[in-house]
């Protein structure tokens, strides 16, 4: 069974039709890149899958392991295995990062009927994963993303992903705002999560990220639909030709 099956998805925000009949199938173990010009609906797709309330699905379906995703609350989707790495991770003053991580992990475990993680196990896990991503103890003590640089916020997203071990990772322009070193750290973090059971949807405007996170399948999205699908060489082709064919320049 496909991990993610999207059929004929239509979605709008405030009467603005953004997704217009999108189809996408992601099998376990696959990494799919979705590229496309600005305004093609890439971020909307990620928000619709994660359950952001501002978006209204008007037609179509999205199934995770055959389960109707669109019918679930955002927290239930997360517990079922959906993870969205946000393009602009938000600051939450007053909620310490550690408290947040722990609450999230245990809430998901509880929803799945699993026991809570013990304090020593939790601390050991965070220490290990944070170390790999260069996230310091000081950052973990601060409010979620408060005072973090753009790169630190993205690394914090990947830390959450590593801790929550989702089935389906959706990365929304994770490369935006990253310098080359930070891009490497983040990509290594993502690659470490590649596994035969896990699927990934990597949304990006540029080919650059795909040098580090090499996709199995590349899609081009335009006006709310997938208009072209190919292998990783498609990304290189787009890099050379730009999105001119889709009514917009590459830059």
């Amino acid at each position: 069974m496909a991990l993610l099956e999207i059929r004929n998805l239509h979605a709008q925000i405030e009467d603005n039709q953004i997704l217009r009949g999108l189809d996408l199938t992601v099998n376990p173990g696959e990494v799919h890149a979705i590229m496309g010009p600005n305004g093609s609906g890439k971020s909307t797709l990620s928000y619709v899958l994660a359950g952001k309330p501002d978006y209204e699905v008007t037609e179509g379906e999205a199934l995770l392991d055959g389960q109707d995703l669109l019918d679930m609350d955002p927290d239930a989707r997360a517990a079922a295995g959906v993870f969205l790495a946000f393009q602009y991770p938000i600051e939450i003053p007053g909620v310490a990062t550690m408290t947040f991580l722990r609450t999230a992990i245990n809430a998901q475990r509880k929803t799945r009927g699993e026991a809570e993680l013990s304090t020593p196990d939790f601390l050991r896990l965070v220490k290990e994963k944070a170390g790999e991503l260069g996230i310091t103890q000081d950052m973990l003590r601060r409010g979620v993303n408060v005072g973090f640089s753009g790169g630190e916020k993205k690394r914090n997203e990947i830390l959450q992903m590593a801790l929550l071990q989702p089935k389906l990772c959706i990365l929304d322009e994770t490369d935006s705002g990253l310098d080359i070193d930070a891009l490497k750290v983040v990509s290594d973090g993502v690659n470490a999560l590649r596994s035969p059971e896990r699927g990934m949807v990597v949304i990006t405007h540029y080919q650059r990220l795909l040098n580090h996170i090499v996709p199995d399948v590349v899609h081009v999205m335009h006006k709310g639909r997938i208009v072209r699908t190919g292998g990783k060489e498609l990304a290189l082709e787009l890099e050379a030709s730009g999105y001119a064919a889709y009514g917009q320049d590459a830059a």
């Binding site: 955002p74 927290d75 989707r77 997360a78 946000f86 007053g94 909620v95 609450t103 929550l164």
Partner: peptide, 26 residues
């Protein structure tokens, strides 16, 4: 803040618990 609530829910934290976290922070 709806965006803050969504961020917490997107990490698997149920609505009531997410609200409580934000009120506590406030």
């Amino acid at each position: 803040d709806e965006d803050l609530l969504f961020y917490l829910k997107a990490r698997g934290i149920p609505a009531k618990e997410a609200e409580a976290l934000l009120i506590q922070a406030f």
